[in-house]
Design a protein around this nucleic acid. Structure first.
Length: 279
DNA sequence: AACAAGACCTGCATGC
DNA sequence: TGCATGCAGGTCTTGT
């Protein structure tokens, strides 16, 4: 699922159901996710109140009133479902957070690539998951110079480098293709071939595509549902992702015979690009 | 050190 | 209808 815009959409959707709410009951039904859910997860979170909902890259952060932080990741297929507590339990409902009678948030993840861990406010920045993580793409720490430095001396293709969360946080397979298309850069280009001007275009493209996707409420493909059950509005607004064989919609490409979206596999994952406007 | 490839796990669309 | 195959939004480990 869930790249930065989707996780941000989930975070916003959980504000109402969780912020300033007490976790009256926490029930772990299955521990074996990407990493095991800690044995004391329920004991350390039950009875606490959620004071703030944060996000770092693709990770969701639930800050509790005693300084405990729940670190959540949705993997490929994770959801946070807000329910009235009346419906039946699904086979992939791994953790239930009950906030009141007939109010609950359920972490559901069929593929179990997601995770739920515990840390504390003080240790969060030094947590192994975060200590080497790159800058937030929508924050002040992300700039042309920072990106240029991260790409410099690296011969791997841009596609792979932008998926690397130590270069920049939060991009995934969809938005890397979309950002490279907006920046008019071929995904096969090596990191060290990128000029200063091109890095500047890439920073702008990344910011614009993520901002637009967040504003639209994220994307929805197969198995992503935002926290409140709404469908993400960015679906169908991709310019290249999953559009192999279609004409490139860019103004300069319209009507040109060679402007057909291509699909290639890089590092075992699909990449989409226009061979005409991306150089 | 940097990079490629495989691994993890389940569900779904496709084609025979 | 049943079955095999390939593919999916992510990251981690292994091997070169």
């Amino acid at each position: 699922m869930p790249e930065l815009p989707e996780v941000e959409t989930v975070r916003r959707g959980l504000e109402g159901p969780l912020r300033a709410r007490k976790l009256v009951s926490v029930e772990v039904r299955r521990h074996d996710l990407r990493e095991p859910i800690p044995k004391d997860f329920a004991a350390r979170t039950r009875g606490r109140s959620v004071v703030e909902l944060g996000r770092r890259g693709k990770y969701l952060l639930l800050h509790l009133d005693d300084g405990t932080v729940i670190i959540g990741h949705l993997g490929m297929s994770g959801r946070m479902l807000v329910r009235d507590g009346q419906g039946p339990q699904g086979p992939h409902d791994h953790v239930r957070f009950v906030t009141a009678a007939e109010q609950e948030v359920v972490f559901c993840d069929p593929r179990r690539f997601g995770l739920l861990l515990l840390s504390t406010r003080d240790k969060l920045a030094q947590h192994p998951l975060f200590k080497d993580m790159g800058p937030e793409p929508l924050g002040d720490a992300f700039s042309t110079e920072v990106l240029r430095k991260a790409l410099g001396g690296r011969r791997a293709p841009l596609k792979a480098l932008l998926l690397d969360q130590t270069v920049v946080a939060g991009l995934g397979n969809i938005y890397v293709s979309e950002a490279l298309h907006r920046a008019r850069l071929l995904p096969q280009r090596s990191g060290d071939s990128v000029s200063r001007a091109e890095a500047g275009r890439l920073v702008t493209a990344i910011r614009e595509v993520l901002t637009a996707a967040i504003a639209a409420g994220g994307s929805t493909l197969r198995d992503y549902v935002s926290a409140d059950g709404e469908i993400g509005g960015f679906q169908g607004r991709f310019l290249v992702y999953d559009r192999a064989g279609n004409p490139c919609p860019t103004a300069g490409c319209r009507g040109k015979a060679d402007a057909v979206i291509q699909r290639v596999v890089q590092a075992g994952r699909s990449t989409y690009f226009c061979p005409r406007c991306q150089k």
